[in-house]
Simulated scan of single mutants.
Amino acid sequence: MKIISFHRKTPFRDILEDLQAHVTEQKERQVWRCFDDLSCLCVTEQIYQRHKAHFSRYPATVEEDVIVSVHSEEEIPWGVRYVGAERLWRRGKGTGVKIAVIDTGISRDHFELKDQIKGGINFVTGRQNGHGTHVAGIIVAEMNQRGIVGVSPEAHLYDVRAFGEDGKSSLGTILRAINWSIENKMDIINMSFGMPQYSEALARAVERANKQGIIMVASAGNNGGEVEYPARYKGVVGVSAIDQNGKLADFSSRGKGANTKAPGVDILSTWPGNQFKTLNGTSMAAPHVTGLKALELSRSKRRKQQV
């Protein structure tokens, strides 16, 4: 595209009439967009080259239709700031740490996530909802001067889809998801889900993951009462939700099994369709801790490599 700005002292209407007559002679329809008050025309490159000699009859400045960008920087959500991620980034951003997100599935084409998602598996079919995408963004939203940034923006994420669009799964499917994470040598498993009752089978799956050195992080629950499973199991980091004042959220489960607290109120993160959305829940708190664990693990791995 070419933008032609004619000399202000040349009557623009006269130029348009002359050009219109020329185009009519060429048996073409009008092929430009004009800005009368600016004495400017926009024409395609093809049309400009075809009528270049005629355009040049008038004093004018010819410019390319260049790309213009807004002055924007990515937003660091309050939760990411609260957990001190910015300070920790000086020593690394989670590079190479493998994180399995067992959830409702992740929007793999989201511009904040697509380069961070390194694989995964679907244990359920059908449409996704946005829960898993929101969790993923809190952990690894890319540092790309757009949108937001996650706690560990250079970690490697694995999309382990075990929940349907309705946000429900079965115990058997969860066991398969954990087993896949073990077999594929994940470093961390994020589990933003829970159930009120104890399960011996799930306890054994958690124990097996722990023996393989996998860090397991789970949301405490949103019932305002007792912590749910798997957060309540020994060897799992159970996470309650706090607000921007550091106060435990009314909805957050608490007590035995709640090993730590993290931001879980008004949390902005990624959403399907290259969008962003604000949500509340311990599901949002857990990935903040997962991201911190990734930063810690990445530093540890780097130190071992340097020895």
Rank of each mutant, 00 (worst) to 15 (best):
S5T: 13
F6M: 11
T10R: 10
T10V: 15
P11W: 10
R13Q: 11
D14N: 09
D14L: 13
L16D: 06
D18C: 07
L19G: 02
Q20N: 12
H22E: 09
H22G: 06
T24I: 07
Q30I: 13
V31E: 00
L38Q: 12
C40H: 09
L41I: 12
C42I: 12
V43Y: 07
V43A: 05
T44H: 09
I47F: 14
H51E: 05
H51W: 13
K52E: 12
A53W: 00
H54M: 05
S56E: 14
Y58H: 12
Y58E: 08
V62G: 03
V62T: 10
D65V: 00
V66H: 11
V66Q: 11
I67C: 08
I67E: 14
V68I: 14
S72D: 13
E75S: 13
V80Q: 02
R81V: 08
V83Y: 09
V83H: 10
G84N: 11
G84M: 09
E86S: 12
W89S: 03
R90Q: 12
K93E: 13
G94W: 01
T95Q: 10
V97K: 01
D103M: 00
D103T: 00
S107M: 00
S107K: 02
R108H: 01
D115C: 06
Q116D: 08
R127G: 09
Q128N: 11
H131N: 09
A136H: 02
A136W: 02
G137D: 04
I138M: 06
I139S: 01
A141M: 08
E142C: 07
Q145Y: 13
R146T: 15
V149Q: 04
V151I: 15
S152E: 07
S152R: 06
S152G: 13
P153Q: 15
P153K: 13
A155S: 15
L157F: 07
D159G: 05
R161Y: 02
R161A: 03
E165R: 15
L171G: 07
T173W: 11
I174P: 02
L175F: 06
R176V: 04
A177E: 01
N179T: 13
M186C: 10
M191C: 06
F193M: 14
P196D: 07
R208S: 11
A209L: 08
Q212T: 09
Q212M: 11
I214W: 03
M216V: 12
S219F: 02
A220I: 08
A220T: 07
G221Q: 01
V227A: 01
V227S: 03
Y229N: 03
Y229D: 00
G238A: 04
G238R: 01
S240R: 00
D243S: 11
Q244N: 10
Q244L: 06
G246V: 09
K247I: 10
L248C: 07
L248N: 02
D250W: 05
S253A: 15
A258W: 01
N259G: 14
K261C: 12
A262E: 04
I267M: 06
I267L: 05
I267Y: 04
T270F: 05
T270M: 08
W271G: 04
P272K: 06
N274A: 07
F276C: 10
L279D: 03
T290C: 06
E296F: 10
R299E: 14
K301H: 10
R303K: 14
K304Q: 12
Q305C: 10
